[in-house]
């Protein structure tokens, strides 16, 4: 479903991501772990070209993202072509980034109407169904300011789902939440995983990675250090850097 090949991202002279290759199958939950500043969020942002990669290839559902082939030649995608790719890729951010002047419902219906051409009535039906699914059936008309962080993040998940994406990118979606609100968001993500949604999840929640992810990759210094099923990578890491990272994070967790 998602193929990242030899991805490199450079900001000026700073190399944030170097030679990263990942392969995510349909229906798989793929967790990316690593310290802050390790480049894991940049990998996600390169997948939907919020940060255009410096080098490498991104494929989503068999289509190249950000590059178009015409008559045997490759060229950068036009803004309109990039929008089509992004419509297929849902993204949820650490800081929710809901539109503050819209209600929960308006946040969810905006893109399906503007990008997918849904009628207002269809968009509203879809949005209500999705908000119901994330447990916010009674918050349709609330503005984000009136919602808790966990509720805002669930609206943000519904907003992304409303585009019927082929894959969801989750960028540290629980990191800005108060501890008691983390579970409600993780719960929604677990449901999504159970329903077969393909997800790339950048996370510090080791328990979530262990219980839900099919595959875990540890990133350090912009490179993939180690990759494998959570049962192996989290319980018996091979690399010294992975061990050190896990020891550090598990100590602060406990």
């Amino acid at each position: 479903m998602v193929e990242v090949r030899n991805l490199k991202k450079q900001f000026g002279s700073l190399v944030a991501v170097e030679d990263v290759s990942l392969s995510v199958k349909a229906g798989e939950v793929f967790a990316i772990i690593g310290a802050s500043g390790s480049g894991k969020s940049t990998i996600l942002k390169c997948i939907n070209f919020l940060e255009p990669p410096t080098a490498g290839e991104i494929w989503v559902d068999g289509r190249r993202v950000g590059v178009v082939q015409t008559g045997g030649r490759l060229r950068p995608a036009r803004a309109s072509e990039l929008r089509l790719s992004r419509a297929e890729i849902g993204m949820v951010f650490q800081n929710f980034n809901l539109f503050p002047h819209f209600t929960a419902l308006q946040n969810v219906i905006e893109a399906p109407m503007a990008v997918r051409g849904l009628s207002r009535r269809d968009a509203v039906d879809l949005a209500k169904e999705l908000l119901d699914r994330v447990g916010l059936g009674d918050k349709f008309d609330e503005h984000p300011r009136r919602l808790s962080g966990g509720q805002q993040q669930r609206v943000a998940i519904a907003r992304a789902l409303a585009m019927r994406p082929k894959v969801m990118l989750m960028d540290e979606v629980t990191s800005a939440l108060d501890p008691e609100l983390v579970e409600e968001v993780l719960g929604v993500m677990k449901t999504l995983a159970r329903d077969g949604m393909t997800m790339l999840v950048v996370t510090h929640e080791m328990a979530f990675a262990r219980d839900v992810a099919n595959s875990v990759v540890f990133v350090d210094g912009g490179r993939v250090v180690e990759q494998g099923p959570p049962s192996e990578l989290l319980r018996a890491p091979q690399e010294a850097r992975t061990k050190a990272f896990l020891q550090r994070i598990l100590r602060t967790d406990a």
Binding site: N48, L50, R83, L84, R86, A87, I89, G90, M91, F93, N97, L98, F99, E110, A111, A114, V115, R159, A160, M163
Partner: peptide
């Protein structure tokens, strides 16, 4: 960014 990620013009 949020608007970009949704594919809005």
């Amino acid at each position: 960014r949020a608007a970009d990620a949704l594919g809005l013009k």
